[in-house]
Structure formats: C-alpha cells, structure tokens
Amino acid sequence: MILSCGAILHYAAAAGHAGADLGSRAVYESVLEATAAGVRTFDLGGTASTSDFTTDVIQRIKTKLEVWSSLGTTV
C-alpha cells in the first residue's frame, strides 16, 4: 500500500504537480531501505508489525525530505 502512494505521487508528478516526484522518490527509497535494513513484516519473513514498518518508513521519508530540502534538492 505504501508503494501505491509512491506510484500515485509519480503519476501526479507526470501531470505537472510540483514536488510530487520528490515525494515519490522518498517513498520508494524509504520502503526499500527499511526492508534492506531488516524491518520486515511477517509476510516478508520479518517480525515487525504493520505499524512498526509504517512508522519506520515514515521516519525515513521525513529524514530524506528534510535533508534534501536543506541541500536545495529538486527533481
């Protein structure tokens, strides 16, 4: 479901909505990084609850957007 949000943001970016592509990138990267770091739900062989996984991904997204903003990153 989280990746679906990333896909919607990508679609919004393609439709010309400023900043949506950066949000999409943050979502995709954060989900992949969380999974690679071992934060996985039961269906992926992990022990994290859905809430634990979601909380981790949200924190990663926030961090990315803060860092990118401080660097003046745009897509």
Rank of each mutant, 00 (worst) to 15 (best):
M1T: 07
M1F: 13
M1D: 03
G6Q: 00
I8N: 02
I8F: 03
A14Q: 15
A15C: 05
A15E: 09
A15F: 06
G16S: 11
H17C: 04
H17K: 09
A20R: 07
R25L: 09
A26S: 12
V27C: 00
V27N: 00
V27S: 02
V27R: 00
Y28E: 15
Y28I: 11
E29M: 01
S30N: 01
S30P: 02
V31S: 02
L32W: 09
L32D: 13
L32P: 01
L32V: 09
E33N: 08
A34S: 06
A37Y: 01
R40F: 08
T41W: 03
T41I: 09
T41L: 01
L44K: 05
L44P: 02
G46W: 01
G46K: 01
G46Q: 01
T47F: 06
T47Y: 09
A48M: 01
T50P: 11
T50S: 09
S51Q: 15
S51P: 08
T54W: 06
D56N: 10
V57Y: 06
V57T: 05
V57Q: 02
Q59I: 04
R60M: 10
R60D: 07
K62T: 05
K64L: 10
L65E: 05
E66W: 08
E66A: 10
V67T: 15
W68N: 15
W68M: 14
S69M: 12
L71Y: 15
L71C: 06
L71A: 10
G72K: 11
G72E: 09
T73A: 14
T74Y: 08
T74R: 10
T74G: 14
V75Q: 13
V75C: 12
